[in-house]
Design a protein around this nucleic acid. Sequence first.
DNA 1: TTGGGAACGAACAAAAATGTATGTCAAAAC
DNA 2: GTTTTGACATACATTTTTGTTCGTTCCCAA
Lengths: 133, 133
Amino acid sequence: MSKRKETSTNSLNKAILSSFCGVVHALDLIGGRWKLLILYKLGTNRKRFSELRDQLPNISERMLTLQLKELQRDHLIKRTVYAEVPARVEYELTDTGMALSPIWQDLEKWGEAHRKTFGAAAATAQPDRLNAV
Amino acid sequence: MSKRKETSTNSLNKAILSSFCGVVHALDLIGGRWKLLILYKLGTNRKRFSELRDQLPNISERMLTLQLKELQRDHLIKRTVYAEVPARVEYELTDTGMALSPIWQDLEKWGEAHRKTFGAAAATAQPDRLNAV
DNA sequence: TTGGGAACGAACAAAAATGTATGTCAAAAC
DNA sequence: GTTTTGACATACATTTTTGTTCGTTCCCAA
């Protein structure tokens, strides 16, 4: 989120791919470690910063802040500040964010099925090196 | 893919989240810059290494190799080597990989719709800093 | 006997993502 | 006047991902 080099091949590839394929664009918006989880938590009802922090295992405040800011920038969530002291801030899904919901429900099913079939071992198992025909 | 530090908070978080939520597990498998694109290219029919390389804008051979290896490890694609000279290798989706297809078709729609609505400007626009109530 | 193409592997370098520690702000409670 | 609280900001360190360059192998064809 901070310092980037806009001219790196890395950045350029990202932009190219993102403009050329909707899926990649989508992944850009919801990718990363925490975003889908945050959206998921907000799926049912609006939550405040501290609630999210407490419900997301191990997230640091910095990460939460960054992700929320990006999600807001990309119009997936809406942020509301209440002028109280100490401040209270609430987050909720936008319509665009809600539109994702059926998709990650399917993805959830697929992911669970995959895990049940292949187990955690899949993460370390090596593929056959040669299966010639 | 190469040297990791299995004990870092980073790695641990990844593992924790992945085991606790199917969506995160799924994102683990199809995330990254190229994987969904590769799956997409293989969606219609099996392709060989060089075809993929030529059809993916700007991908390096190394990246393609790495991604293919991981996809194979995770049972999303199947690799077949023909004992010819020079070697010919073909890749195709497994059933698990195919099962993803409806999902990324929805994701594609969502991504396109998002881009049309918010445009490329979304990537640089800043959210309102304060919208007190 | 050199040269070629296909599909990689290895060493290295750059960039991006993630995590840690500490500081800020306002006003109200003590 | 010191402390407390929620929601961050800032500086910095670490880890992971992505990209670059070169080398390798196999046999056959020129």
